[in-house]
Design a protein around this nucleic acid. Sequence first.
DNA 1: TCTGGGGTCCTAGGACCC
DNA 2: TCTGGGGTCCTAGGACCC
Length: 416
Amino acid sequence: MIGLADCNNFYASCERVFKPSLNNKPVVVLSNNDGCIIARSNESKRLGIKMGEPVFKVKNLIKENNVRVFSTNFSLYGDLSKRVMTTLKSEVSSVEVYSIDEAFLDFSDHLNLDRLIYIRSKVKKWTGIPISIGVAPTKTLAKVANYLAKKHKEKGVFILDDDDLIKKVLKDFSVQDLWGVGRRYSRKLNQLNIHNALQLRNLDTDWLRKKFSINMVRLQKELKGEVSYSFDSNDSIRKSICTSRSFAKEVREFNTLKEYVSNFAVNCASKLRKQKSYCSKLSLFLMTNRFKSNVKQYYPSITLDFLTPTNDNLEIVTMANKALKRIYSSNFIYKKAGVVLHNTVLKEDIQMSLFDQIDRKKRAKLMCSIDYLNNILGKNKVRVASQGLKENLDFKRNNLSPSYTTKYSDILTIKI
DNA sequence: TCTGGGGTCCTAGGACCC
DNA sequence: TCTGGGGTCCTAGGACCC
């Protein structure tokens, strides 16, 4: 049996951990640049605030109901996520971290309701984060079970084990709420007169394969209780690493863009080193403001190869700036840019180049020193010149909460 | 005025091989 | 006039996830 533990309204719950006065009050968390709503407490959901909605569209609703608004604070969410995962690992034999707020749990040893209730209360007690747990024979069904667990408010856990129960539950479960069915597929399924998950489960598999891709067949198998997506606790490395941002103010100048791109490249390289891997390709993309219908649009992108896989700041920044020169056009004003590193490999799998001229041992030492210094002194204290000298690039974060758990100056003070 | 960021996997089509 | 068959690898784009 596979469990799915999912943190309830995760980012909103994180904001509440060190500020209990927010309990029972509507809370929302915003995306980068304070643009869209990306997390809502139950109270905010009840007000009708939608996921992904631009905040300026619900300004009145927020004001009238005194909704507490927070800028995104990823160092806080990332750290609390780690705590939740560590707590889960202390209770089950194997954990597959699936996202910042979700993990699959191995319950092949033993399973009962009391165990789930205990795990849930332990996570709440140790981290302050409320979670729900659903358990079933497959990951897809565990997702369904978790959905039901969230509805059972007082318990917050649900076991979906016998096939009659599964059928009964699937009959009342909309296809659009299934894991792996998004907007497009749900529309197509509805057009084919398939509305609930039981109907999907009972379809002819060959027919389904013809109408959709192999993924839909895998999904169907999982609904029948047969595993398509096996449990995998290996912490494998990321296959691609991306840093992209929308700019608070649109950018026209090449040199300004170059500073952003250099910073994105350095950020990617440092993530790459954190997972001890190397990349052999770099992509760069630029975007104009897609919401301005009266302005000519331009979405260029380019992919360049490294002769030898690398995770070196200097090489990666140089390549990113080379890419920028190739696709930049002064005829447009840009709203967003991003750097993607891909084809990542581990050190032992690197294919060296016969014509490589870089002293890689020396460079690795240099990167090690840079990481060490920046770790102590603060991000980007030691930097590549083309990153520019601005302490913080221009991104809007007007309602940022303290980084209670990752910054000495932000540690909670208690008055006794 | 203001509209997020970071991932995975699959497929079709092109370029190439013998 | 007539122009094969069987592969691999790569990329861009599209679907999905959180």
